[in-house]
Simulated assay, not measured.
Amino acid sequence: MNLNARRRSGYQAAAIVAAAVLLAGCGSGGGADGMPTARPVGTLKARHVKAALPDKEALPGWRQIGSRQIDTHGYLCQVVAGDACNDVIATGTANFTRGAQRTTKWLRFSFTVYSCRTVSAAQLLYEAMPDYDKRADGAKTPALGDESAASSSLLNGEHPVSIYHDKVRIGTTVLWTFAMGTEEAVTSERAELAAKLQVERVQQAHLGLKPSAHADVP
């Protein structure tokens, strides 16, 4: 056996040993300290999506509007993206508000999480999501997840409503977050806090952890 062949044989043996150790650790159901080992989740199921949505503890001082909702039939997604929703297995929504409506302090956060069967399906859905105008305040937004974009729009009327949108893709999951309210209350900073909160909770769910991220919004 020549030198290169012996090296390849050594590498293969090391890989087999490493795989055996890894499988043994997974089979034990716990780490060195006896705590359960987190198991990464490639595609979030409905229960993962629900857990990833913010809850009351995630936004202290805010009022949750209704409960976290899960749709496994595709209706909530199809309204937004049509046929791009064919491989969406679960859609989750959650809404929060603070401040009295029709006052300068009124602000609402809306979170939507779409879990897709594959990365390519998530990419298709991400592209199908609407894009609006650049942020009204001209602020640059940080890159989030594997893909992200930020925009804004304005609903005119007796009481205009400013809306800041963030869409993000993390592997097989697409997030769409809204910060809406009066022009005084809606800022890029607050919209980013909402988007980052949802991103962190989805990342925790993908890692096999119980989502616990929270945000203190000024």
Rank of each mutant, 00 (worst) to 15 (best):
S188H: 15
D146G: 06
M35E: 13
H73A: 08
Q12C: 05
R6K: 15
P36C: 06
V113L: 12
A24D: 04
A179W: 08
L44H: 07
G92H: 01
G138F: 09
T37M: 07
A15G: 13
A213K: 06
E192P: 01
D83L: 04
K167L: 03
S115A: 10
R7T: 10
E189K: 10
M129N: 09
E189V: 12
Q78Y: 06
L44V: 13
D131C: 05
G42A: 14
R135L: 11
G74M: 02
A215R: 10
D55N: 12
P218E: 07
D133V: 06
V49G: 04
L154T: 07
P142D: 10
V113I: 08
C116T: 09
P218L: 13
G92F: 02
A15F: 15
A52K: 02
C85R: 04
G34T: 05
A139P: 02
D216Q: 08
E192N: 09
A5W: 11
I163Y: 03
I163E: 05
G42C: 11
G42R: 15
A139F: 01
G99S: 05
S148W: 05
R117W: 02
T118D: 09
H206L: 09
G66D: 08
G138V: 11
A136I: 10
S188Y: 12
T43I: 09
S115Y: 01
Q204T: 11
M180Q: 14
S9V: 11
T72E: 09
E184P: 00
P130A: 12
A128D: 03
G145M: 06
G157C: 14
G138Q: 14
I170G: 00
I89S: 04
G25W: 08
I170K: 03
F178V: 03
S9P: 01
G74D: 03
P40W: 13
K196Y: 03
G34L: 06
L124Q: 14
W62Q: 14
M129F: 11
A150L: 01
Q101Y: 14
F109H: 03
R63K: 12
S120F: 06
S28T: 15
A58Q: 01
A100L: 15
T187P: 03
L193K: 12
P54D: 02
G171H: 03
A20Q: 08
A143L: 07
T141V: 10
E158C: 14
L76C: 08
A128W: 05
A90N: 01
T37R: 10
N86L: 00
A38K: 15
V119W: 01
P60Y: 15
A5F: 13
V41A: 06
Y114Q: 04
H73E: 08
T173A: 06
F111A: 03
S151N: 10
A18S: 14
A24F: 14
A128V: 02
H165V: 12
G10E: 14
D146L: 05
I16A: 09
Q203W: 02
I65D: 05
R98C: 02
L155R: 09
Q123F: 01
D55L: 03
Q64E: 12
Y11P: 02
N95Q: 09
A84W: 00
S162I: 06
T141K: 04
S120A: 12
P54K: 03
T172N: 13
V88M: 00
